[in-house]
Design a protein around this nucleic acid. Structure first.
Lengths: 223, 223
DNA sequence: TGTCGACAATTTGCGTGCAGAATGATAGGC
DNA sequence: GCCTATCATTCTGCACGCAAATTGTCGACA
């Protein structure tokens, strides 16, 4: 069990940040964290350094570190990167997919469909993320997979802000779109996968943007 | 000068790794590094954790950490990601460029041309990298800029292995291609920039691949 | 002679303490 | 009454020390 201390702190904090249990901007004090995890400050610091490198926390030099804020000004740039990664990972998956990866993709698609049936928004967000990560891994390019994973995780935080506004029309549409994606990947049709991935991304971007426009606090709060 | 210890170690090690002063696979011992930098092990560890998050070193749990190896098996995947980033950053730069960014781009282009004149391969590699990073920043998407920067830095290590094989035909061609790129960006022609970026990338990939094919040790050494 | 097991050495992972830096509070001057 | 300068507090950055884990070596046994 040696060497698992910092790892455990890292994973716990990462999960807490992504699931918004820790509010963006809230301070992370090393000493209170060390008391909370019943460990010394050293592994805490290592976890914070790693999270900072990932962009999930911001370290203020000689002061404290805070949970990274969700910058709504950067949202267009975020959508831009997300869309491209949707397209390229889906395209590559259509080219490089292997049977066992298709099984994994189908499994997450089933989990997502089940979450939609249960109207479980949190499970939807999580399984949707894993579904697309599985596609990215089938694409076989770790550079894209890493960036995409980071973007999807950041997206979890954004989606979590709006998950209460989910109605059940769009998620069912997502299930269908996912189904088309999987079919195109299985068929090995790169251009079709690319196009479907782009449309799927555009659809999601439109949804989030309409949610943001709906509650006008979006531009002021949660800095 | 407080808080600069770990930063200094990080920057020094990063530079040494990228410039191949530290051979890929060579072990990094915390105590000897701490003696070398005349500091405690704590800031050394912090620097190593950051480098590990960036993928520049590999940490073997409960053992030592080594300089990340250049995996030639992954080279196709690397080229794939590099090409896409070449294209997308150039395209975005054509759309979002601002005057002061164009000045910066032109400055690095001049530095690159001068390095070509001087036949200074090391300066060519460095200014080429900065030239494309400037374009990426003009594109205005930090997600792409970060990935592209990482790819270009990794490319510095690869290019450094072959910089002795540079003749002066290709670099001059690069200067011309860079000139075309800048012109297209200035004109705001996104499609042309995209295409030129892709061709420039393909050109570089071809060159590196031919170098690798030329000396047959490429597939066996430097793991 | 080859293989297995125990031991020593090296190195990391983590605990703890101290000094420096930044912030907020308080007192003094205008 | 307001602004400024000094000080106390608090937290980080770093030094140092100990214990666990792994590796390589040496010796014993088949």
């Amino acid at each position: 069990m040696r060497g698992s201390g910092a790892q455990k702190v890292y994973e716990t904090l990462r999960k807490a940040i992504l699931e918004l249990e820790l509010d963006p901007g809230s301070p992370l004090d090393e000493v209170s964290l060390s008391a909370q995890f019943d460990m010394s400050r050293t592994p805490i610091r290592e976890a914070l350094v790693r999270l900072a490198a990932e962009g999930l926390v911001t370290t203020l030099p000689n002061r404290n570190t805070i949970v990274a804020t969700i910058d709504f000004v950067r949202l267009p740039v975020y959508f831009e990167a997300l869309s491209l990664m949707y397209r390229v990972t889906t395209r590559l998956a259509a080219i490089n997919r292997r049977p066992e990866q298709l099984i994994s993709i189908r499994a997450w698609q089933a989990a997502f469909a089940e979450a939609v049936e249960r109207q479980d928004a949190l499970a939807m967000i999580a399984s949707n993320r894993d579904f697309h990560v599985a596609i990215a891994e089938a694409g076989g390019n770790p550079y894209f997979t890493q960036l995409f994973t980071r973007l999807l995780d950041e997206g979890r935080r954004i989606l979590r802000l709006y998950y209460s506004s989910f109605d059940d029309r769009l998620p069912r549409q997502y299930v269908e779109e996912h189904e088309l994606l999987v079919t195109a990947i299985e068929a090995g049709d790169a251009d079709l996968s690319d196009r479907l991935g782009g449309e799927h991304a555009a659809q999601i971007v439109r949804q989030i943007q309409s949610y943001i426009a709906r509650d006008q606090t979006g531009s002021m709060r949660l800095v």
